[in-house]
Computed example of a mutant assay.
Amino acid sequence: LFNNAGISDRMSSITEITAEGWSWIFDILVRGPALGMKHAAPLMLERGGGSIINTASIAGLQAGFGPIAYSTAKAGVIHMSRVAAAQLSPQKIRVNAICPGLIATSIFGASIGLPLEVADQMAARVAENASKAQPVPKAGLPDDIAQAALYLASDAAAFVSGTHLVVDGGITVGGRHAWDTTSVSPFATILGDMIPGQS
């Protein structure tokens, strides 16, 4: 089972989001995968096991990669996958999550209510420019997530359960200064000429 349906809300802050908006995000991003697992698990038990994969996000790992409701829901998906793995792994049902980074899809435009054609144009722009935002110099594509899902679904991952696989081109390895030699470290900015070799 690959629970991969997803949405995002506008970039609402905690002071702006409505109760209805919060519930809408959680219904799709958390309740949907929970019910998917609930209904798939008995069928997997009948056939002797299986693999469940839930789409989370790097937004569920760190602040700054999505709006608050989306980010909180994706953090919930990561933990829900871990708890479900604890319950189902003894019955030969593995449960894992994938945390995509900046992937060139239309979700960015669709989430703010743009028509599909314009959202697709935004996806193309992401594909053109994403490589500049992360250490791996290529755009993240849907196929990168598909390959991760294929691995987690396959027998090659028979010993993998209760974890999350980050597929993000290295964007979460650290601040830009960690991988971009032209970027200045925050420590260098603060301490300036006190650091040898800095001016």
Rank of each mutant, 00 (worst) to 15 (best):
2 F>Q: 09
12 S>M: 09
15 T>L: 10
16 E>P: 06
18 T>F: 04
20 E>T: 02
35 L>P: 10
38 K>Y: 09
39 H>N: 09
41 A>W: 07
53 I>E: 11
59 A>P: 06
62 Q>V: 04
64 G>L: 06
69 A>W: 03
69 A>R: 02
70 Y>N: 12
80 M>F: 03
85 A>T: 09
88 L>S: 11
90 P>T: 04
91 Q>F: 12
93 I>Q: 08
95 V>R: 09
97 A>S: 12
98 I>T: 04
99 C>S: 11
109 G>C: 04
110 A>M: 02
112 I>K: 06
113 G>R: 06
113 G>W: 07
116 L>A: 15
117 E>W: 01
118 V>H: 07
123 A>R: 11
124 A>E: 14
130 A>D: 06
133 A>T: 08
138 K>R: 15
138 K>D: 07
138 K>N: 11
143 D>L: 14
143 D>V: 13
146 A>Y: 09
147 Q>F: 10
148 A>W: 11
155 D>K: 12
156 A>E: 11
156 A>F: 08
157 A>F: 04
157 A>K: 03
160 V>K: 02
164 H>Y: 15
168 D>H: 05
168 D>A: 06
168 D>W: 06
171 I>A: 01
171 I>R: 00
171 I>N: 03
177 H>I: 02
178 A>H: 02
179 W>R: 06
182 T>S: 15
183 S>E: 08
185 S>E: 02
186 P>V: 01
188 A>M: 02
189 T>A: 05
190 I>C: 05
191 L>I: 01
191 L>W: 03
192 G>L: 04
193 D>A: 13
197 G>E: 05
